[in-house]
Amino acid sequence: MNEERKEYWRWAESRWTNPEISDWQGRTITAGVDIGSTSTQAVILVDGELFAYSNMRTGSDSPESANHAMAWALEGTGMTLDDLQYTIGTGYGRVNVPFADKCITEITCHARGANRIYGPSVRTILDMGGQDCKAIHCDERGRVTSFMMNDKCAAGTGRGMEAIANLLGVDIGEIGDRSFQVEEEPKPVSSMCVVFAKAEVAALMRSGWSKEMVLAAYCRAMAIRVCKLLTRNKMEPDFAITGGIAKNKGVVKRIEEIMGVTALEPQGYDTQIAGALGAAIIAIDMLKKKRARGG
């Protein structure tokens, strides 16, 4: 019985380098690092174009997470930390990015990142992160015009979904598809507190519910919760979702159904890098200002 216990919640970490950019020397190089409660991303831009990124779990030490994420993004590119001309830290750990020139909140950064990922028509952004959720409204340049965050509790966020994946023994990447394998949509789980929801889920399983029914009930409950947040802020049809939960069709489709909208497509970008990408874009403006001041 020495078989290693599978961690169903563990989503795939990733990195990417743009094969079309090789001559980065002498060009404007900016970076963004988003240290969230659950995941950390590092994004590098060359003249504003996406050059490389990494996406990994946040460890217990924020500066170390930032260093690791950036080292992985730089890996194999020939670029070093010294080549980054301006770096912005964002996310909960934004003040702990050792090599950052400035830190900016993830709300501002996500809006700018979503503007790039989904195009300038996007107005309403739902950022579903590891332990919080934000409804953001922005203008055509990705500037925030209003925002609202969930209060106090991590319920209805990525961490809750991870806990349910582990409890049910379903890989986190399969939750979306499997939540639709039900004959009829069940009622949502009533408790959104992760601890209570786990107890409720266990009770549902004992009463004979299939895993698919439980997943459908949990995804619906999460969708209902975030839709309330969207309604309280400013909801427009040009709507996009960023963050890890944007990859979960089970939640996304149900949000679309409840709100009567279709979420914009991410045009090939990883939705989890929105914050770091926005930070790297803002870094271009900051670098220009710095140079204008003679810095």
């Binding site: 909140t105 709300i107 501002t108 922005c138 500037r143 925030v144 015009t145 965050m149 209060d151 106090k152």
Partner: peptide, 23 residues
């Protein structure tokens, strides 16, 4: 008890005003 959570909203609000994002 939630000074950190208020802080991030405060900071984002200041950034929002600073970048002229209001309608």
């Amino acid at each position: 008890a939630n000074a950190g959570q208020v802080g991030i909203r405060a900071e984002a609000f200041v950034e929002m005003i600073e970048t002229g994002g209001a309608d």
